[in-house]
Design a protein around this nucleic acid. Sequence first.
DNA 1: GCGATAAGTTATCGTCGCTAGGTCAACCGG
DNA 2: CCGGTTGACCTAGCGACGATAACTTATCGC
Lengths: 203, 203
Amino acid sequence: MRRRSRSPRGEGERLRDEILAATEKLLISTGDADRVSIRMISEAVGVTAPSLYMHFPDKDALLFAVCQAQFVRLERAIEAAVRDIDDPVQRLHAMGHTYVRFGVEHPEQYRILLMTKMQVTRDDFEAGTIPGVSAFTQLLRAVEACMDAGAFRRGDAFLVATGLWAVVHGITSLRISMHGFPFVGGTELLDHVLAVQVKGLAP
Amino acid sequence: MRRRSRSPRGEGERLRDEILAATEKLLISTGDADRVSIRMISEAVGVTAPSLYMHFPDKDALLFAVCQAQFVRLERAIEAAVRDIDDPVQRLHAMGHTYVRFGVEHPEQYRILLMTKMQVTRDDFEAGTIPGVSAFTQLLRAVEACMDAGAFRRGDAFLVATGLWAVVHGITSLRISMHGFPFVGGTELLDHVLAVQVKGLAP
DNA sequence: GCGATAAGTTATCGTCGCTAGGTCAACCGG
DNA sequence: CCGGTTGACCTAGCGACGATAACTTATCGC
């Protein structure tokens, strides 16, 4: 077993980062959180298993931290995808596509964050304290913009945004769970559902 | 440990049924498949752990069998919910509500069947070989009925049905994963999203 | 009654998440 | 320069897990 030299005094954080990096790598390569063990991670880092517990209270917290970091990138990706688009409806489409692609490309992270039990309140939700889920705030703004622009009829923007999220999450979730879904061409289903939503939300 | 008398010769199947029943019970009471162990199940049935492997190749198969049986009931529930409704659009609404309620009331079963990796092809899908997912066939018929009735514009019924499924699954999945979702009243979100879909699919 | 076989058992393997308690080096006040 | 403190790890091991190999025992047709 390869050894790692001990970090100097104030730099225990360095190990923390290495653990996160190694965990993410293993999560991607195995594609299954249950098959990533504490012992595997610790060996990859070059440290013994109990050392991980200096930096994370338990395995769930470690996995969650990995996914949180990943989901911060989702936020950025959505921001980047939307930056050059003016039409609010177009923005919505771009956000949807970015979201689904992200989920499909990081299935295990997506699963841990959004397909297992968690305790989230509406406050967490609106405040955007949960990274990645705070991409929802961007969605909410986009819906309001659609209403302001007259593309959507006026109404409860939160409800509309939640509905759009559910739609996009539904497709993402099924694509992650069922290999081969949706059995029709790649983005065809997403395009269709988004188009139907937009049409149904028109004044 | 309570003992169970051995089954007579051709009736090993009886134990199988008892295992299924006990597993379902534990699945409901714990609310988490990871917290239902082979040893717990076997003790509940009054048998030793390895005996379960006479009837199921592994734990996954056992859990899957439990969920399959549950999902057959979903099909029946949907049939029952729809039986007395003539208007095809109304039928769609009823199906959606029945589906979501079923998922929320049997979260662990729903999760195992539709929120973890599985290998499903479009053939399985259309043939309805997977119980519960074969409720999809009923959905497909309902969509075709909506098109025939002129409530929906003509088009790819399979695509439309898949979209509706994704929508309803999205809400179900999020309600299972996030305690408190959707933060608005019980069926408000579902009603809204279904209404938007219906409006968007109109000619 | 008797061999065959179905229906279980006992014993055990390797792995898992996690903890208690120790070691050892880096720093700090005197 | 030195003794104590403390942060960064380690060794050893617990209890539980899924699963397997090999044994026993009850029931059956004959």
